Amino acid sequence: MDRVFLIAGASSGIGAATARLAAEAGYRLVLGARSEDKLTELTDELGGIAVRCDVTHYPDLEAMVERARTTFGRIDVVFANAGVGHPRGFEAGDPEAAKAMVLTNVYGVYATIRATAAALRATKGHLVITSSIAGRRALKGSLYSATKFAVTGMAEAARQDFNGTGVRTTLISPGMVETDGFSHDLEDTLTAQDIARTVMFAVAQPPHMDINEILIRPTAQDS
């Protein structure tokens, strides 16, 4: 039976790039995001199913998992990739936007894990989570960095929770990536395709091998 790759946060950037590589590798796709138009364009290109999903709304994730299992009968890889940014500085930006970021970046990862855990145990599957180098070193005035510290810790907590079940857990922690909504000083940043290749490297390893974290920087990044 064909393996199934579910991506939460699939409509653009890293999620869309990973969907393309997963399709090339022979996976059936289940793509979720809030942007239905972009998802539909992607499934028209790659096949699979598109499900409107807001990771801060748990019933959306339950519905996506149910759709995946009803359509394909299984889920083999889950990529918890949904995330948003926020301006640095604790007096910068809008407090409601900051709250929405915390819900997306932290609660959204928890909710994705919870909704897919039983399906992953059934296939001895693979959980992949997008964090950031900002989850390894604090950034001045950055609530975004704090959310990624939480995600880094959550990935290890999930690894321990799945230990003994055959489910693997990989945290992807990129440095500067050329992504919508983020600006960087470097010209030679990582691309979404770079991160997608990293995801596919992790999931392609044999079942006894669990790559728990990959920290990846552009060569020009000094910290």
Rank of each mutant, 00 (worst) to 15 (best):
L143W: 06
G135T: 03
V84A: 13
A118N: 11
G125F: 09
T112N: 04
R67E: 12
A80N: 15
N105M: 10
R136W: 15
V106D: 12
A158H: 02
T170W: 04
K140G: 04
A100D: 10
F149N: 07
R74A: 15
R137L: 01
V106T: 14
G85E: 10
Y144S: 08
I172T: 05
V109N: 01
V102I: 15
F162T: 04
A155S: 12
G164H: 01
E156I: 09
N163M: 09
G175S: 03
T165W: 08
A111K: 10
L103A: 15
V77S: 05
G93Q: 12
H86D: 10
V167K: 02
A82I: 10
V102K: 02
A134D: 03
G89P: 07
Y110G: 00
R88T: 06
N163A: 13
A68K: 08
A98D: 08
G108H: 07
G164C: 01
V77L: 04
S173D: 14
T169F: 01
E96R: 14
F90K: 00
E91I: 00
G85W: 02
A134L: 01
G83R: 01
G89I: 02
R88K: 13
S142G: 02
V102Q: 08
G166K: 02
F149V: 04
A92S: 15
A98G: 07
I133H: 05
E91S: 07
A115H: 05
A98M: 08
R136K: 15
R67P: 04
M154Q: 15
I133D: 05
K140H: 13
G153P: 01
